[in-house]
């Protein structure tokens, strides 16, 4: 039995929308973390060639996570299990447990074949190289 369960798939996960970002900024508050409302919290950033998704998933191993890239959607699924509860009493329980699933919509097409994921000390980093056709290209001007 789970004492607390993470929210499942979040609606309006599109980060293209300014409103969504505004709302998430309001929710985040001064602390910068969303606490129990969304798990895992994600940061998404890009440079010219790649998009990076980073998520804080402390206590999880790569085997506990199920990552899928489908078109312009990346899904992070998993379950964080609770330690044994028999014969112990919880004085404080702030760390969420249960199953979670988050969908991140990507702003551009990516090269699905070259997506790489890395998990280190509870930080998951997904690197998604942008598709060839969306990479910036210098246009030569003929004289």
């Amino acid at each position: 039995m789970f004492v607390r369960t993470f929210n499942r798939v979040q609606p309006g996960m599109l980060f293209r929308g300014g409103i969504d970002r505004l709302v998430s900024d309001l929710l985040d508050g001064a602390n910068g973390s969303c606490g129990q409302c969304t798990f895992p919290p994600v940061n998404v950033w890009e440079d010219e060639q790649r998009i990076f998704i980073e998520a804080e998933v402390p206590g999880m191993k790569l085997d506990d996570l199920d990552l899928t890239v489908n078109g312009d959607e990346v899904t992070i699924k998993g379950e964080r299990k609770q330690d044994e509860t028999d014969g112990v009493s919880y004085h404080r329980q702030e760390r969420g447990v249960g199953t979670f699933s988050r969908v991140v919509h990507l702003p551009t097409a990516v090269d699905v074949e070259k997506v790489a994921a890395n998990l280190n000390a509870g930080v998951l980093t997904i690197t998604l190289p942008k598709a060839q056709e969306v990479l910036p290209r210098k246009i030569k001007v003929n004289e």
Partner: peptide, 21 residues
């Protein structure tokens, strides 16, 4: 975020601190 768990012989504190070495 922490969990504080009492066991018969000890208290266990679990703290989520991702990205630390």
């Amino acid at each position: 975020d922490v969990d504080i768990i009492e066991r018969p012989d000890e208290l266990t504190v679990l703290a989520d601190m991702p990205g630390v070495s």
